[in-house]
Amino acid sequence: MTYDRLVCANCASPVSEGRCRVCRASRERLQQEEGPFGGLSPVVLISALLVLVAALALLAHQTI
């Protein structure tokens, strides 16, 4: 989940702006949970996976 569209229940502003302490705490927690691929969209991840599978198929075809 990304925090750029979340609205804080405490101050009713976007969490990404971090206006209150609740927003800032939520933003920090979500940033830590993202991991190395958290910033990438699912489309980019699927595209990268397809390219990897195609490269492996090509490599396997050349070794036969």
Rank of each mutant, 00 (worst) to 15 (best):
V22M: 12
S26L: 02
V22P: 01
A55F: 04
L50M: 13
V7K: 03
V15A: 06
A54Y: 04
L45M: 10
A25M: 07
L52F: 05
V7L: 06
L52G: 04
G39Q: 09
V44Y: 08
Y3C: 08
N10I: 02
G18T: 01
I64Y: 09
L49D: 09
L40I: 00
L52N: 00
S13E: 15
R5P: 00
M1H: 08
P36Q: 04
R19P: 01
G38D: 06
L49I: 08
V22W: 04
P42W: 00
Q62P: 00
L56N: 10
A25V: 03
F37E: 13
A60G: 14
R27V: 06
E28S: 15
V7T: 09
L30K: 01
P42H: 02
G18R: 01
A60Y: 05
R27A: 14
R24I: 12
T2K: 10
F37L: 15
I64K: 09
E28L: 14
L49P: 00
I46L: 14
T63L: 09
A57F: 06
I64P: 07
T2N: 12
R24G: 07
Q31R: 12
I64Q: 14
G38K: 04
Q62N: 12
P36V: 03
L30Q: 06
R21Q: 12
C23S: 05
L45G: 00
L58D: 07
L59V: 12
P14M: 09
G35F: 08
L30I: 06
G35K: 08
A9E: 10
C8I: 04
C11G: 13
T2G: 13
R19N: 14
G38M: 05
V7R: 04
N10P: 01
